[in-house]
Design a protein around this nucleic acid. Sequence first.
DNA 1: GCTGAAAACACTCCATA
DNA 2: TATGGAGTGTTTTCAGC
Lengths: 162, 162
Amino acid sequence: MRDSVPLDPVDLAILRLLQNDARMTYRDLAAEVGVAPSTCLDRVARLRRAGVILGHELRVDPAKLGRGLEALLLVQVRPHRRELVGPFVERIRALPESRALFHLTGPDDYLVHVAVADTADLQRLVLDEFTSRKEVARVETRLIFQRWDCGPLLPARHAAGE
Amino acid sequence: MRDSVPLDPVDLAILRLLQNDARMTYRDLAAEVGVAPSTCLDRVARLRRAGVILGHELRVDPAKLGRGLEALLLVQVRPHRRELVGPFVERIRALPESRALFHLTGPDDYLVHVAVADTADLQRLVLDEFTSRKEVARVETRLIFQRWDCGPLLPARHAAGE
DNA sequence: GCTGAAAACACTCCATA
DNA sequence: TATGGAGTGTTTTCAGC
């Protein structure tokens, strides 16, 4: 269940198309892929069961919600012990400004992707929620000038028949 | 069009629910929000037109596609001039391993989120696509141990009536 | 913004190869 | 074992109010 799943060209075509527009109807999907709608439905259900498809997400523009400034915070947590990092992770995840949290290798233990209104809001967030916490040893703030999303996620190797 | 959009409590409830499950039917959505299905449809169409809703995305498990290792690459591009960074950005975006690309403030100019098969694959990617490029001055690789997604994105300030 | 009717759709079953 | 086609219940959509 943790390993990669065998995917044939039909599965791959479905994944590619749904990553562009997850609300495509099965009818249109079937027409593009070149199989019957029921087959599409079956394949999608199978991909869901196999855990390849995790869910359907709405993509929202943060700027339109008054969160025009995005930043990455590189956070060093010291001492890096389970009883400290557990509550830290939960607290950060619960912040309305947080978009994603990563546990990383390297000198910084965590990377937090945040969306805020402006630099004043960012300063408040860093001071009140990060540097004021005693387990946070260091915070490095990097503003995001621009973000590009890349193409659909496809299998690492040979696409077909594996 | 770049600024924030006035959203009433109904819009916010819709956005909150759809961010949890973007494939909810308008019927169920209407029942939860407390309005008629047609009203929901109208609101969603309006949010789409206003650019608040950018699209519907399929969330896929990279590990299931044979891309069990994710990493962040901090890249310094020197000299940091338009005629060099343009092609760099386009090349990185086109890589099948790339998931997202950020232009940042700070000592590293770009952050690239990649998904690869294993450490050998990551080494190949870093050597062939990054350090071998003459405009790339430095690459710092950080593995992602774990990732947490945070709650739905909501407006920065007062939710209602603005 | 709601109601109701018409159209489009998702989904199940069964025959088929 | 997986596919394709037809049928059924549901959802979406678009009137009018």
